[in-house]
């Protein structure tokens, strides 16, 4: 089984599960991904202000969305954790904040082409590095970042959070930009 354990969860090896859901409508793969992510999504939504009942209901909807949108997931652009986060965040804005969420216009480099395995691996490595860097932050700074993402901190409060030594994020931004430019060139 390729079910990640807690120890190597940082490699975020859920890409194959999403592919099984997409290609085979594999409910076993879904059950495993559900068991891992649904309790985290529920926790995220409760910290964002939802009560347990609402958070439970929304977490189920988030997980159903993963099934329905499995064909849109591109492992060269995002880890499964990142993808789940964006779906959960949008659910929070929709249900808890009752707002629409304007999203950037998508680039048309969609899933029609199979993602390059080297890109997928590179992204997994960057993701692991980022997680490690976050884990190594002093507790106080880590708490601030968590609050910014999970606790519905206002944007003026978030301004105070920046300036944190997030060197890895900066390098990630550069890497993401390089990859983006590379992909744009390939499209032309």
């Amino acid at each position: 089984m390729d079910q990640p354990t807690r120890k190597d969860a940082r490699t975020d090896d859920w890409v194959a599960h999403v592919a099984r859901i997409r290609d085979d409508k594999d409910e076993t793969a879904f059950a495993e991904i559900f068991a891992h992510f649904a309790p985290r999504v529920k926790s995220f939504l409760m910290r964002g202000g939802g009560d347990a009942t609402l958070a439970e209901e929304c977490a189920q909807e988030v997980m159903a969305t993963l099934w329905q949108k499995a064909h849109l997931f591109d492992p060269a652009r995002a880890s499964v954790s990142t993808w789940v986060f964006t779906v959960a965040r949008n659910k929070k804005i929709d249900v808890l904040r009752r707002q629409r969420r304007p999203e950037p216009e998508d680039l048309t480099w969609g899933p029609e082409a199979e993602p390059d395995q080297a890109d997928v691996l590179a992204l997994q490595q960057e993701t692991a590095q980022l997680s490690a860097a976050l884990a190594e932050l002093p507790q106080k700074q880590r708490d601030l970042i968590e609050k910014a993402y999970f606790g519905d901190m206002s944007h003026s409060e978030i301004a105070d959070v920046t300036g944190l030594p997030l060197g890895t994020i900066k390098s990630r931004i550069r890497l993401a930009l390089d990859r983006l430019r590379h992909a744009m060139r390939q499209r032309q």
Binding site: S81, P104, E146, A176
Partner: peptide, 27 residues
């Protein structure tokens, strides 16, 4: 690219966050 990177931070936090049990019938 920067937004995608910050999304990645959100994903990393979600991966490490504590869990709250789903109901038995949730799946």
């Amino acid at each position: 690219a920067a937004v995608e990177s910050y999304d990645c931070v959100g994903g990393a936090l979600l991966a490490e966050t504590e869990t709250v049990d789903m109901s038995a019938s949730a799946l």
